[in-house]
């Protein structure tokens, strides 16, 4: 099962990176400067997209609902991690889980405030969608008020404190090619994949994960099986918040700039990713994340940077023409 995921990730890279690369080089004689480095760039951008989209997909699979406040939870998780370092002097490996748990709690409060009252009244999905937009705006305004809109970043020494980073960037030599990868970028690549495997394991093998799948399949059955559906919802929101928080902290660490608006850029990308991967499909979210990142980086590498968004959305359009349910989506029922 997990090997299959890896296979899918590799196919995403193949589709999004290798094929355009080969076509450009051999058919159009267009040179890609340092493709190895660009591949590395695509890998960690993809990791963050995947991690972000995972939480989106998780909620969609369980509630059949888009939580448009997810990008604000992502931003809050990042800021909670940042504040733990700035104000409480926590080392980064403590601040990271703090940011994740913080993101989880913010997500649970989004559920309690924006979704629960509407769920109780059996409100239509569209009201819940609008309500989540409202929650997103409130979270954004609160963050602007508390953290101000001035860009902030993790102090350099918090990043240097990571094991093995004392000596600045590591340089990997691959057949005369210089690929520069900082330890933080390795962490950014490894952490989402570890989290993704944990999530898959949890959903497929643990009791609570199975309960989530039952809720996703049919809430009535879940209730009759003594599953507390409200708790499962809260837990799902918590998990998605944890994933978003991890993505937020990693994004802050990776790219050295955080503002309350950091969620806005990722929000649309995340949506694209899960539609591309197959709505509510966990593996699809990961594959979609890598695919979108690879397409973006490749379009920049080929010198069409200003077109990268257009390229991404055209690919989305093309893929949906061929597979309306998304790459890994199953037609008909969604599944966790």
């Amino acid at each position: 099962m997990n090997l299959r995921t890896l296979f899918y990730v590799l196919s995403a890279i193949f589709l999004g990176f290798l094929i355009p690369y080969l076509i450009a080089t051999y058919l159009f004689n267009k040179e890609v400067l340092s493709p190895e480095q660009q591949l590395a760039n695509a890998m960690w951008r993809g990791s963050i997209y995947s991690l972000f989209a995972l939480g989106y997909a998780l909620i969609f699979s369980i509630l059949g609902l888009l939580n448009l406040a997810h990008s604000s939870v992502f931003m809050w998780g990042g800021y909670i991690g940042l504040m733990s370092v700035l104000k409480l002097d926590m080392p980064i490996w403590v601040a990271m889980p703090v940011g994740m748990i913080g993101g989880g709690l913010v997500a649970v409060s989004v559920d309690v405030i924006a979704f629960m009252p509407l769920r109780r009244r059996n409100a239509p999905r569209i009201s819940q969608l609008i309500s989540s937009i409202g929650a997103s705006v409130i979270l954004l305004s609160l963050a602007t008020l508390i953290f101000s809109s001035t860009p902030k970043r993790f102090p350099q020494d918090s990043i240097d404190a990571l094991p093995g980073t004392a000596d600045k960037p590591l340089t990997w030599l691959l057949d005369n090619a210089n690929v520069r990868i900082t330890p933080i970028q390795i962490a950014i690549f490894v952490i989402p994949i570890v989290l993704m495997f944990l999530l898959e394991y949890m959903v497929n093998s643990l009791k609570i994960g199975k309960a989530m799948r039952v809720v996703a399949f049919n809430q009535r059955i879940a209730r009759l099986l003594s599953i507390n559906v409200g708790n499962i919802f809260a837990f799902t929101f918590f998990l998605s918040g944890v994933l978003a928080g991890a993505a937020g902290v990693l994004q802050g660490l990776a790219f050295n700039s955080m503002t309350p608006y950091m969620g806005a850029t990722v929000a649309l990308k995340g949506l694209t990713v899960i539609v591309l991967g197959g709505l509510g499909n966990i593996r699809g979210a990961v594959v979609g994340g890598f695919l979108v990142a690879n397409i973006e980086i490749m379009s920049i590498a080929l010198g069409y940077g200003w077109l990268s968004d257009a390229v991404v959305f055209s690919s989305l359009f093309l893929i949906l023409l061929v597979r309306p349910q998304g790459l890994l989506g199953e037609s008909g029922k969604m599944r966790a």
């Binding site: 340092s34 480095q37 760039n41 695509a42 951008r45 790219f255 850029t265 920049i300 590498a301 940077g305």
Partner: peptide, 8 residues
């Protein structure tokens, strides 16, 4: 926030 590709 990610300029790695252009910089590369």
């Amino acid at each position: 926030t990610d300029f790695n590709a252009q910089l590369t």
